[in-house]
């Protein structure tokens, strides 16, 4: 882990590999350095994965507590990178950040990949598009988040992490999970995991975009994903089989293949 300084903010940052720049914007928890998908991506790319303020080892500054703060922070992160052709991959909650980021059309953004993102409201006022992260039984959350909860990678946490708590877990691991959960809630309790205005602005995204979805995701369904992709001009939509809300964790090979097969028209 290294530290990235962006203006007054310090971000714990994972850097791995060499090649074109790929910025990962994490979801429920920071990107785990042992994640198989990460190692595969880094085979021909420089992968940069900061922890959001309040997640992992990144400090949470006073009054830093909104999506507005996160979007501006990541705009500053993009500005700070030497490449003018950065691939941004956003996962779940981080997919929401990435979509907001792309709406601003930052000049360093080359292409956008959203992985089971939240962030928009599609259904009627009594339809819940996104299962409530904080007010759902942890067991149900676990079942809905994974195609096969029993086959999740050990020690690498996604939604439903509560089901993995055991005596084998270290105190430090629990403390980090609790800190991440608290901070996620701070940013996104209400409206729960969406910006009511965002869907009206997705048409401004002008970079090549791919939306990747786990076929078994029952936190936000593939139908939501298809509609999300439909609001972004020219966006591709790809389903990953045998994966839930975290296809990068459940099916790392298929996930990386979906990423690397995404043609980059600028090249």
């Amino acid at each position: 882990m290294t530290a990235m300084r962006v203006g007054p903010f310090e971000l714990e940052t994972l850097r791995i590999g060499n090649g074109r720049t790929v910025l990962l914007i994490h979801g429920i928890n920071p990107i785990h350095p042992d994640s198989p998908f990460l190692l595969k991506l880094a085979a021909d790319a420089e992968v940069i994965a900061p922890s959001h303020p309040g997640f992992g080892g990144s400090p949470l500054p006073a009054d830093f507590d909104t999506m507005y703060d996160l979007v501006n922070l990541y705009l500053a992160v993009l500005d700070s990178l030497p490449s003018d052709d950065v691939t941004v991959i956003g996962f779940s909650f981080g997919g929401w950040i990435a979509a907001e980021l792309a709406v601003a059309n930052p000049k360093h953004l080359g292409r956008l990949i959203l992985v089971d993102p939240v962030g928009i409201k599609l259904g009627g006022r009594e339809d819940r598009d996104i299962v409530h992260f904080f007010n759902t039984d942890p067991g149900e959350l676990d079942q809905r988040s994974w195609h096969d909860p029993a086959r999740r990678p050990p020690g690498i946490h996604g939604l439903g992490w509560q089901a993995t708590i055991s005596e084998k877990m270290t105190d430090q691991e629990m403390i980090l999970l609790a800190r991440n959960w608290d901070t996620l809630c701070l940013y996104a309790w209400r409206p729960h995991m969406f910006n009511p205005q965002l869907k009206h602005w997705l048409h401004r995204i002008s970079v090549p975009t791919k939306v990747i979805w786990g076929e078994s995701d029952r936190i936000v369904t593939p139908d939501y994903g298809r509609a999300y992709a439909g609001l972004i001009p020219g966006a591709e939509f790809t389903i990953i089989k045998h994966a839930g809300h975290h296809p990068e964790l459940e099916q790392p090979e298929a996930f990386v293949s979906a990423v690397t097969s995404f043609p980059d028209p600028r090249r």
Partner: peptide, 23 residues
């Protein structure tokens, strides 16, 4: 109370206290 409304509800206890509480 359901677990999501008690020990797993964010903000109820400092993260440093969670190992004891969760165990």
């Amino acid at each position: 109370s359901a677990p999501q409304m008690s020990k797993f509800m964010p903000g109820q206890i400092a993260p440093e206290m969670t190992p004891a509480a969760w165990r």
